[in-house]
């Protein structure tokens, strides 16, 4: 559960953790799609990847936020 991120006495929004985590997950998924050569099966890859990032972000907020 992550309410705030404290770094050297600075209190930051937990989004500074959630965003990189979601980005990393999206990048891993993109890599996996490339390796499996499934990119051709997706229409508008950019739309798909941005949407995937948003979904991962929501999932990260839900899980790490302890909700």
């Amino acid at each position: 559960m992550l309410d705030v991120v404290v770094f050297g006495g600075l209190e930051l929004s937990p989004l500074v953790v959630y965003f990189p985590v979601a980005f990393l997950l999206a990048a891993l998924t993109r890599l996996a799609l490339h390796r499996l050569d499934w990119h051709d099966r997706i229409w508008r890859v950019a739309w798909f990847e941005v949407s995937l990032f948003v979904c991962y972000l929501a999932l990260t907020v839900y899980l790490l936020g302890g909700r």
Binding site: R41, I42, R44, F48, C55, L57, A58
Partner: peptide
Amino acid sequence: LVTVLMVVVAVFAG
């Protein structure tokens, strides 16, 4: 369909 579905889910998640 896969892409549109993902966009719709992303809208709700966002």
